[in-house]
């Protein structure tokens, strides 16, 4: 543990990101703390209800206005202190040391409100007082109150990358070291891709179309730009189990880029029916997955391979309808 902490620290230092790391940790801790404060009702249900629902051990019973009024006259502070430190039969924090102070207070208010003590029905949560005191209707169900109407929380595509985050320049891409001088001399993919046919995934470039249209002219020989590839135009249809359309494998587009020896015979035995291919193996980087999911278009582009409707599907559906 100690060793790994040192390693982590060492790495952070080396990357000059100690402050970043600390900041992130603090942020994370803050976020966790804030998220974990439970409502009074929730805490009551888990802990307090054991005694306060039935009134065992002289506990004031939920809903008993007379019982609670008597205690409430001492003031919320006293009730809170009793609950936190214990009082008579009441154990400290209801016997559960993990319940936070704020949660205990929430639970007390929940019990007071549920027992008809009206004084507390309009009391806003302390944290919310400054911003939304006027809009809080009831404290009984302390739901988080939205802070602004135009909150970005509910904007579209929260988890999707924006266009500005695609094809970042090397110093910003998270794998190049911005402190390295050479990093700043490297070409930015965005600049390179501006003139190429775009796609929805991968590099956001349709490499096959870019080649077809002549937008790029990659060499087939290391030195001679005039050498032309040996293109083989043969489609292989692979029948697929389940409901997905059959796979059409085009030799043409593959031989534009590759040599036969890249795939045959190590990855695919050049013989019909000799290759067992499953999506599982592809996802794990075997068979088609040697390139697709790494450099060639990603596996999320299902229909680019599963492109041929099964011959019997239309008939079967028609039969079912009739």
């Amino acid at each position: 543990m100690i060793r790994s902490s040192f390693e982590l620290h060492d790495r952070c230092c080396r990357r000059g990101q100690r402050l970043w790391a600390t900041g992130l940790l603090l942020l994370a801790a803050g976020a966790c703390g804030a998220a974990e404060i439970r409502s009074g009702e929730e805490v009551y249900g888990v802990s307090c209800g054991g005694c306060h629902a039935t009134g065992v051990l002289q506990a004031p019973k939920l809903g008993d206005n007379a019982d609670w009024s008597k205690r409430e006259q001492q003031g919320l502070e006293v009730l809170l202190e009793h609950a936190l430190k214990g009082y008579k039969n009441m154990p400290a924090r209801g016997g559960n040391p993990t319940i936070k102070d704020q949660e205990i207070e929430n639970a007390i208010i929940h019990m007071l409100v549920s027992s008809g003590i009206e004084k507390y029905t309009a009391k806003p949560a302390p944290a919310e007082t400054a911003k939304t005191s006027a809009t809080v209707a009831s404290v009984a169900d302390r739901k988080p109150v939205p802070q602004a109407r135009s909150s970005s929380v509910n904007s579209f595509n929260r988890l999707m990358k924006s266009k500005e985050e695609w094809n970042l320049a090397p110093p910003k891409d998270g794998i190049h070291d911005p402190k390295n001088e050479g990093t700043h001399m490297l070409q930015s993919p965005r600049t390179a891709f501006e003139v190429l046919v775009s796609a929805k995934s991968g590099n956001r470039v349709d490499w096959v179309k870019a080649l077809e249209k002549g937008e790029i002219a990659p060499r087939y020989d290391r030195l001679d730009p005039e050498v032309k590839p040996v293109v083989m135009d043969l489609n292989i249809v692979r029948e697929v189990k389940g409901s997905m359309p059959d796979v059409v494998y085009p030799h043409k587009q593959h031989t534009e880029w590759l040599d036969c020896s890249n795939c045959h015979p190590a990855i695919f035995i050049p013989q019909k029916g000799a290759n067992q291919i499953s999506m599982a193996s592809i996802l794990l980087g075997q068979k088609c997955g040697v390139c697709h999911g790494k450099v060639a278009f990603p596996i999320s582009e299902c229909r680019r391979c599963h492109s041929q409707q099964k011959p019997d599907t239309v008939e079967t559906v028609n039969k079912q309808i009739n």
Partner: peptide, 18 residues
């Protein structure tokens, strides 16, 4: 960077010839 190299060379050059 694969992207940079595939603009200039086909896969075959590195993965078969080299």
């Amino acid at each position: 960077p694969h992207w940079f190299h595939r603009i200039r060379f086909r896969c075959k050059v590195c993965h078969a010839d080299l």
